[in-house]
Design a protein around this nucleic acid. Structure first.
Lengths: 209, 209
DNA sequence: GTCTATACTCTGATAGAC
DNA sequence: GTCTATCAGAGTATAGAC
């Protein structure tokens, strides 16, 4: 309780972001009013402007922080030399990350167009940085001939679309658990890369048998 | 010129739909006003209500007619017995259809959530009907053991996400033409189904060599 | 930092003249 | 079928008291 009154604002800003995230995900940025956000955090609309300059800046904060967290987390993953293993790891990472944060992910690609030019560019740069990680894995696999890929950029976009698509249908408590889904997607992604998962890989994985 | 004055309204309604389609695709349903739509077709806002009861009913008309046209066109395709060929045909159809109508497709999955419950259900039923076509192809291929698929429903959603994703990046005049993209996606979809396209299929396609 | 009050603009939708 | 005019409400954002 040693916290000073003056620092409460930080917490409020975070509560605002959380409420906005929920509302934007559910109804869309344009359909949500500042009054609704304020009500959700038990404030009057005017009070929101102590924490954010405009409604737009709330959206910007959500998208930038989502993309930065995504980049931070994937860069914290261990580097994997073998392209096939790297692709599998990327797939598992992406699926899990996206299933864990359905709201943020949903907003990140539904509300991109509601960003003003400046913030739009910022987010796009981060997106491309993320996409490049996958594209580089594909290129490395093409170089070693482990992958059979016709076109790395198109395959990159195709894989990302396929993976991000989980969020349109996955719900907890459904027929399949996260681990099962992860495995299914790994199979599909490796197949797309032209290096289907063998039934067993005795040489490398004897200890798992 | 034998057209009666009284029937001009039909044309106006179509112009309204076209303008709304463009504006909704560009800015989103919630961000577009009736006045903007009216301006686009050189009308006053009030005149729109001669053709549509509400703004919502414009959105409904767009989504329903898009899904109905999609269903109509795919049902007009010739039936193909062989699952592999059917999957290839489905892929080509989907890619081409979606590349040809970027606006409609974009709206169809971005603005679903802005539909009121009734229309939402109508559109969802049509979507599921479409998805079932693909799922049935996959199931047939699993039955004949031509496909190596772990889970038909998940694979269905994955393929549809992958294919529909073209619309997020494809632009005419880019590095690749529609035909090339179609071929790349066929390769990827067949790989996902566990029946990669052979380099040549001498038995069936001698006449093409 | 939050409140109340408010400025000003825009919203979807309707009424009635033509 | 379109126009003008208008309604009632909601939109973002600001000002000033506490």
């Amino acid at each position: 309780m040693a916290r000073k009154t003056g620092s409460v604002g930080i917490e409020t800003a975070e509560r605002v972001l959380k409420a906005a995230s929920m509302l934007f995900a559910r109804h869309g940025y344009a359909a949500v009013s500042m009054r609704q956000i304020a009500k959700e955090v038990n404030l009057q609309a005017g009070a929101l402007y102590n924490h954010f300059e405009t409604k737009q800046s709330i959206l910007r904060a959500l998208l930038i922080s989502h993309m930065e967290a995504l980049m931070e987390e994937i860069e914290a993953q261990p580097e994997i030399a073998d392209p096939r293993d790297a692709l599998e790891a990327f797939t598992r990472f992406h699926i899990r990350y996206h299933i864990d944060r359905p709201e943020e992910v949903f907003i990140a690609y539904m509300e991109l167009r509601n960003l003003e030019p400046g913030p739009y560019r910022e987010v796009t740069v981060l997106r491309q940085k993320y996409e490049r990680i996958l594209r580089d894995i594909l290129r490395r696999g093409m170089a070693t001939r482990e992958f059979a890929i016709v076109d790395a950029p198109v395959t990159t976009m195709a894989i990302i679309s396929m993976l991000t698509g989980v969020n349109t249908w996955f719900r907890y408590g459904g027929r399949l658990g996260v681990d099962e889904i992860e495995n299914i997607y790994v199979n599909m992604v490796l197949a797309v890369a032209g290096t289907p998962k063998p039934v067993l890989r005795a040489t490398q994985n004897e200890e798992l048998a």
